[in-house]
Design a protein around this nucleic acid. Sequence first.
DNA 1: TGAAAGTGCGAAAACGATTAAGCTTCATGC
DNA 2: GCATGAAGCTTAATCGTTTTCGCACTTTCA
Lengths: 352, 352
Amino acid sequence: MVSMKDISVVCGVSVATVSKALNDQSDIGQDTKKRIRKVAEEMGYFPNTAAKMLKTNRSYNIGVLFNHEDYSGLTHDYYAFVLDSLKNTVEEKGYDITFVNTNIRRKGVTSYLEHCRSRGFDGVAIVCTDFYSPEILQLVRGGIPIVTLDHLFNNVCAVMSNNAQGMQDLLTYIYEKGHRRVAYIHGADSAVTQSRLSSFYRTAAQLGLTIPDEYIRMSPYRDTRGTYVETVKLLELREPPTCILYPDDFSAFGGYNAIQERGLRIPGDISIAGYDGIRIARHIEPTLTTLRQDTQELGKMVGEKLLSLIEHPKTTLVETIVVEGHVFEGNSVADVKSVSEDESPGSAKFRV
Amino acid sequence: MVSMKDISVVCGVSVATVSKALNDQSDIGQDTKKRIRKVAEEMGYFPNTAAKMLKTNRSYNIGVLFNHEDYSGLTHDYYAFVLDSLKNTVEEKGYDITFVNTNIRRKGVTSYLEHCRSRGFDGVAIVCTDFYSPEILQLVRGGIPIVTLDHLFNNVCAVMSNNAQGMQDLLTYIYEKGHRRVAYIHGADSAVTQSRLSSFYRTAAQLGLTIPDEYIRMSPYRDTRGTYVETVKLLELREPPTCILYPDDFSAFGGYNAIQERGLRIPGDISIAGYDGIRIARHIEPTLTTLRQDTQELGKMVGEKLLSLIEHPKTTLVETIVVEGHVFEGNSVADVKSVSEDESPGSAKFRV
DNA sequence: TGAAAGTGCGAAAACGATTAAGCTTCATGC
DNA sequence: GCATGAAGCTTAATCGTTTTCGCACTTTCA
């Protein structure tokens, strides 16, 4: 590896001068700079990140915390797309991305926070984890610039997908398609679930929909078995819904299976909608109507906020950035507007 | 940040002693070691990675090259699972993972190789990229320990999913189910495609199958539109196949759509099979019969080989590790064994 | 003309660790 | 009594940068 020292002897100047020339400091003459740069180029010089880090306390490296319990994490379309966008955003600005080690086996390092400090991350994006673990709290309070995704800590920047608005838009869309009996199989309890569910109730009330208790059911996220079972229960009700909302797109396929298995058609006999906007769901007929979260924007916002926090700590607002999703109109929600309101929409064709 | 120096003054010893005590060197007394360790613990000491790197030329950090053109990369089930497994494998051994920056904007750094050297990666896993780019070649020849996935370079360790065997197993399985007219829509040209396709031909010959030219078609990977079109063409043949193989699971859904749209049933009227074993395909009825690649093992092998290359460069064999997949038996391939051979299987129920 | 200001560069300390070599001290063997 | 060796610790150099301060020289301007 060629170092600044090597360049300095070739150019007949000091290493200090080389450093300044390469960093475009103002107290070096133009011609000297040119010469040094040229030689550096020719000799194939590139900076030693470790030395630079040691001296400047800047790593141009940001940590990403990505836990993957329950088949989530990297292999989840939502997080994968967010990470991809985040990666592109920060790389454009000269930063690299390192995973925060979640299987720590490095001597002397015993927590996320220590790992991050040890690696000298300039900032950390907490994308996907158990936000209630004490270790996360320690990390968040550790003094490193932090941005969280879809979770709110006091005094910490967060980027949130607008779940309340999203659910409102989705339900409103379905309502406008003429549906009046809408069931919602929601995911396991979490902040995200809370906001979607309460928005569902609120929006339903605003629209004048009455939602029987048995229309609200629970099934874990990304669990097709659970949604299958719950869908069957919904279909067997005396007054089944005309449209079912699922925890997410993936789990919606559990409902899809239950419905098809009974010889019912989507959306002819019953409508369904997901949440997320995963890619595959746009490629299977009937394409799934869903609330597509703007993963591109989410990742970009996490990255930009984090870099801003790193580069302008004083002037960067600690705030929550809300990113809107939008209804993706697939073929899974029938238009039943033509049916008169007292005759329950969709029910005519409905057979269990 | 508390440094070794801080510990040394508290303990009344030199920094050298602290370093050796913490690194468990043999020339430090047991009681001194104990005392130093205790103080280090109490003071919340953790090592400064940059300083350590600078001195030792070891980063305990491995680079992962992950290009994501064409919606591939991170957001592809196959690569995401491999990466996940790789991550777990190396983290267990105390290594971290950093993405090789593919949108380089760091001053002085102009190529993958320079980026890797600048960051001091102990090794690099090339998982997903355009293997024919000159920059990759430069990286591969750059002297850093390298392991590639699904691509062979001379004198470079590689981990390969056994595409030839996989295709043979899959086609044999289909044959044993009684199918004699099997079409294959293969992916765009690549090493992987080559080996699958030639294995398809070879296996067909061994089984005594005659494959008409019009049964072999091309459609890009992960492109449902292309497979849709090709599937339609196959269905419209005078003698349509009884089973269609697709480039991959994702694109198989294009065929799925074409088939369902024509009112045909899978597998009642026609059978299909994918390749990869993506998760969602196991959750949609009819579940897709496919060759499931062992992403867990692939990632693990890449990690283990790379670490071995790093830690025992002299004694580690430069080799190609082949990882077997296995047929995942879904519901998309019909058993047509009962049908006599001269009466073309499946054709009885076939209507276009 | 001489002081002040500006320009261009170098010396040296520092960042936090590792490690070869050297120095004491003490027990051992002959 | 003395070389020998081991044990335990220190000294000091080093990794490749950055950055403060200072020095020498030139220009400007009263």
